[in-house]
Nucleic acid binder design. Structure first.
Lengths: 233, 233
DNA sequence: GACATTAGGTGTACGGTGTACGCCCGTCAA
DNA sequence: TTGACGGGCGTACACCGTACACCTAATGTC
């Protein structure tokens, strides 16, 4: 009778368990006290054990973000676009409020995870099915900015517009992405296709910024002219 | 003839010089390679020498942010409110683009520096003189969010609404702040005064969030109905 | 000019971080 | 029974921010 389960041998770690413990620890003790060492201790394990399940701390943080994104309500079919967007974004906001560290971590990420891309893709889908043109959807997503995530931030850094110089390679990447994220690719390249060019996928940040700003300012003025006041305070 | 300037003794450090070198180093090598040690080396000095000019790294970062804020154009008098706001914000954006690390650092700050408060104060002043009510100005500033800084982010954490429990102490702080930042205090407490209460300075984040979101969504819909398309792409 | 004061630069040291590398043992397939 | 292998362990390294004690060079006072 070898190894007769000496006091219930601790279950083996899984990536899932690591991420779950990391989220729980960040919720409880704050993101600043989440170190590879503290997380390992919480799991009753030696720090280096974690590296068998996450490549490094960056990947750990990415995984934690994915956990939070996974908590965002799924799409409700049959809603009008504005309700659908609002519900989705407010659900995202609720997830962010449940995990106060999440917005900060998302802000600090450089490139989005597949989970994040999928979320964005479905968001774009709402607009497209609501009758928005590709062009308008493009700008609308920029204007939403990180409100889409329940807070505010500049995303869209340069996922697609990496200077991989070789346009054939770039086209391949685009084609590959289109299979998984059709809406993203449609919006990302749509505008440029209209201009006859496929290169220069990077968008005009300055224009996007001013678009959102102008939109807000016009809205402000409209409210001002109506003498608008909020009910509560 | 004592101390005959042996090869031009290096000029003494100043806080200004430290901050300037820090900004330059962050511009050149990125914010990640800015450590107290690397900064000291760039200044030809031992790391601990810096601590005679900044209390710690946090204060160094605050100082760097102030340098960037100092680059934002001063207010132009005689402009209509919308032009004034737009120019100011676009100037802020230019400053952020000159120092790519700045937005990230500002995002990471917890409480605003006096320089930052002054900037916000003058921004509020533009709206107030443009005929905006205190109430509307309050919400408008929230909706602008960190676009005010040339990027996007949630500020207004809890500068005033710290639970210092004793309302008399709080009133003192408010009175003190009002001398320096009249517009901020006016907007911060204005809404509550109308409600008859001075306590609960904290604002309803949820409401502010939905206000800005609704504003954007309404704008989007208006554009959609008009079949709006941007000229460039 | 002489001296006390003090502000500014130095050197050492400590506790924290992420993680590379090698070992070793339990599990499982053949 | 044996071999492979995946997962947890231990050690070690480079880097970080910064506390503390020291020493030195500039400054204010007589």
């Amino acid at each position: 009778m070898p190894t007769p389960a000496p006091a219930q041998r601790r279950a083996r770690l899984t990536r899932r368990a690591v991420l779950g413990a990391a989220v729980a620890l960040a919720d409880k003790a704050g993101i600043d006290s989440l170190s590879m060492r503290s997380l390992a201790q919480a799991l009753g394990v030696v720090p280096m054990a974690l590296y068998k399940h996450v490549a490094n701390k960056e990947e750990l943080l990415d995984g934690m973000v994915d956990v939070v994104i996974g908590e965002i309500d799924a799409l409700v079919v049959g809603e009008a676009w504005k309700d659908a967007v609002r519900h989705r974004i407010l659900s995202a906001r609720r997830a962010m409020l449940r995990h106060p560290w999440a917005s900060q971590v998302i802000k600090s990420r450089t490139s989005p995870t597949p989970q994040a891309l999928e979320y964005m893709d479905s968001m774009i889908g709402i607009f497209r099915e609501g009758g928005f043109s590709v062009n308008l959807t493009h700008h609308v997503m920029h204007a939403l900015g990180s409100r889409m995530w329940g807070f505010t931030l500049e995303v869209f850094d340069s996922s697609l517009s990496s200077e991989s110089l070789d346009p054939q390679v770039q086209a391949g990447i685009i084609h590959e992405m289109a299979a998984t994220y059709p809406h993203i690719v449609e919006v990302a390249i749509g505008a440029d296709l209209e201009g006859g060019s496929v290169v220069g996928l990077g968008c005009d940040d300055q224009f996007e910024f001013e678009f959102a700003l102008g939109l807000l300012l016009d809205g402000f003025e409209r409210l001002r002219q109506q003498g608008w006041e909020s009910a509560s305070h």
